[in-house]
Design a protein around this nucleic acid. Structure first.
Lengths: 191, 191
DNA sequence: GAATACATGTAATCCGTTACATGATTCT
DNA sequence: AGAATCATGTAACGGATTACATGTATTC
């Protein structure tokens, strides 16, 4: 029973497993991607919280606050925790990854070498910028007091996803460099 | 003014830029991800082709075939080609990447070290399997007769996206190995 | 004769984004 | 006084997946 299938629900439960929060705090947290790989707008969060509460996976208490409506603080329930860990242990679905950038690269042969290089340089710059931001957050982690090597501490999962983001971006930059070399070396061979 | 905003439209145009195809052939091609990073079902393709034809970005000729309806072969028009290259040269949108696997890892601290390792091993196996498939296709490219180093040949873009897939999967496997080390080294310290 | 591949569409549903809507508190 | 932030919701729209629907040609 207690069937949350929506992935968003598990993202919210994952946040609430660390500490109770208001809907606003959750939507704040999910504007920048949670775990660097999941984001959602506030218009998704509030209905999702209502659905989770209807399933008794979270519980809310009304606290006073500004605005035309009551401010509610949400906390995960025992049911919610077990639903979350059950999901974690369920088989991982095959990855379906859509990347508009790669779709563009796939048709790159239609562009002139100059235009192609321009596109790849733009992509490279974006990956580098992201890498910088990640490196900064990495320093905050390693110089901070959070126990990032303890697999039972909340910061562990967060740090692991950050590591992945850094690796992925670094690989992307290397690939851009390889592609730029290809475009320069063979760019003026044919007509 | 010939306005395709749908990314799917450009995926279809990208396929038709290489050669004319029927709707069925396009949907076949897009079941396995095009350029390794974009896929679509047939129920998306047929309405999209109709929309592209209404915008005169593709043109169809009826050919006889099986089934209750006419079989149509689609070809890209000059308008379609210029629409596609305009899109290629337009600014790349910031990457929004959703990864359910990473969302799970983010909550990994809730699992026992054993269960956590199990999850990571599963993820690792999937990346390795994909890497094997990519390596096979890589051999077909490099041992084949297609001119993959000529930036003006259709195979160039395809090969570039394959390279990216390989790099990304390899980075993912390395990250899984790092995570498994972390889980083993620090897995039994606390509690 | 049955199963699979060929071939093309529509409908229902779900998920996510953007826009609409309201109003208090805090900071400059 | 005005802007930004806090705070919570609904509505409209668009893209994607799943299910519904139909029927031929080929292969086992």
């Amino acid at each position: 029973m207690a069937t949350v299938t929506r992935t968003l629900g598990f993202a919210v439960l994952g946040l609430l497993a660390k500490q109770p929060r208001t809907g606003y705090e959750i939507s704040r947290a999910m504007q920048r991607p949670v775990g660097y790989f999941w984001s959602a707008g506030h218009s998704q969060i509030y209905p999702e919280l209502a659905a989770l509460e209807a399933d008794r996976l979270v519980r809310s208490t009304i606290i006073s606050g500004p605005g035309p409506r009551d401010t509610k603080r949400y906390a995960i329930t025992a049911r919610g925790s077990s639903s979350l860990t059950t999901w974690l242990k369920s088989p991982v679905p095959p990855e379906t990854y859509k990347d508009e950038l790669m779709l563009r690269v796939w048709s790159l042969w239609l562009l002139s070498p100059d235009d192609a290089r321009e596109l790849v340089r733009e992509v490279r710059a974006e990956h580098l910028a992201a890498l910088d931001a990640y490196a900064f957050e990495d320093q905050e982690f390693t110089h901070g007091r959070e126990r990032i090597t303890d697999p039972a501490a909340p910061a562990f999962g967060e740090y692991a996803t950050l590591r992945y983001g850094m690796l992925r971006r670094r690989a992307s930059v290397e690939w851009c460099d390889w592609l730029l070399t290809q475009l320069s070396e063979h760019g003026n061979e044919t007509t």
